[in-house]
Simulated scan of single mutants.
Amino acid sequence: MGLERHLWGINEEVKAMVDSQFKVNVASTAVVPKVDSGSLTFPDFRNNKLSAVEIETCVLFIDIRKSTEISGSHLRPTLAKLYSAFVRAMVQAAEYYGGKVRNIIGDRVMVVFDEKDCFKNAIDSAILLYTVSEYIINKHFKHNEIKCGIGIDYGKLLVVKTGTIKRGDESREYKSLVWLGNACNIASKLTDQANKGFVKSNFEIEVEVIDYGFLFGRISPIGGSPFMGIESKNEGGPKKRKIVLSKEEFLDGIRDSENGVSYSYHGDIKSLKKVEKKINTSPILLSETVYEGFKKACPNADSITKRWWKIQEIKIENYSGKIYGGSIYKSVIEKI
């Protein structure tokens, strides 16, 4: 087949799939689907349809920190042993509490759970995965440099079967499942931020406050809230206020003024100091939805009653909820 004809065929298939006549049938499921589940189909161009499923549950990711550096500092046989042992151990640990491994890319493993008891099973799995990576993988990999990040979120996942029908011994390589939904994105981003060290930069500014008292009494021009923490050098002098801002807040709020630079509507900036704080995130990070779901499902769990989950001082893109983290392990490992 010539290249022109090959490209023509691809063009016709894409054109057919994006056409409004091409239907996508979505069925609900409470059980994690497999790539060969009957409820999932490849695109059917004869009947212009595609069958997909939707599941509302927890999704977990785990991967190795600084894997690029590790790959560059060890011989290939050592790396082959390490990654093979790591992925195999993670799969075995994930399955213990009913997790279904649905994607492995390099050292990143994706685990999805059936809807029933998904919060409990996801948290138990995360703790077990951390236990195995920290206390078994590191025990035998003598450089003791294997650190992992784990992230979990909960939400609706649209599952689509992708690829194409291929006959022969490569048939499995040409089909896969794509998991679509915000929960996958958030869980993946939490994984990226877990078990890492950061330097958080804040800006402490002192502003000369504009006095709107003649219009509003002692009321602020924004939000209707009184100014707090105002210091005056003397009774008749200008009022000053210290404000601590994140980098994003500072850059978003600075404005030109006749006397230099002002911050929002608070007044001219008279002093500026950059304050840096070192932050270390926990190995296991949970979205607020997962934490609250687990707390409701398992109120008497040790990690809840003993408050082992702590709010983390980090933010991730397109997520506004709290992030909880912990370094919790299965104590039975101490006997091994």
Rank of each mutant, 00 (worst) to 15 (best):
H140D: 15
D256M: 09
I150E: 08
K142G: 13
A187Y: 01
I254L: 12
S257A: 12
E248A: 09
F198K: 08
I222Q: 02
L190A: 05
L157K: 00
T162K: 06
K200I: 13
R218E: 15
I146P: 07
I150H: 02
D256W: 04
T164L: 14
H143D: 15
K240R: 06
L251W: 06
D252A: 11
I222V: 12
E204I: 09
I150Y: 05
E206H: 07
A194C: 07
Y174A: 15
V199Y: 08
D169C: 15
D153C: 01
A183S: 14
D256S: 05
Y174I: 03
K200G: 04
E258W: 09
K240H: 07
L251K: 09
P238Y: 07
D252E: 11
T164S: 15
E231K: 02
K247A: 15
R172W: 12
N195R: 01
K166V: 14
G237Q: 04
V207H: 00
E208T: 09
Y212G: 00
S257T: 11
K175D: 12
P221R: 05
K200H: 12
Y174V: 08
E231H: 02
K240S: 05
I230L: 10
V209E: 00
I186D: 01
V244W: 06
I205T: 05
G223L: 06
M228K: 04
H140Y: 13
D169K: 11
I205S: 04
R167M: 14
G237N: 08
G229L: 04
F198I: 07
D192C: 09
F216K: 01
F227S: 00
K161G: 01
I205N: 01
C148Q: 02
M228V: 02
L158H: 06
H140T: 12
F141S: 10
E208H: 05
D153S: 14
S171R: 13
F141I: 09
G213A: 04
F214Q: 01
I152E: 00
L245S: 11
I210S: 03
D256I: 07
H143P: 09
F227P: 00
E258C: 11
F250G: 02
K189W: 00
S232N: 09
K166F: 12
K200M: 10
V244I: 11
V244G: 09
G163E: 10
H143Q: 15
L158I: 13
L177C: 12
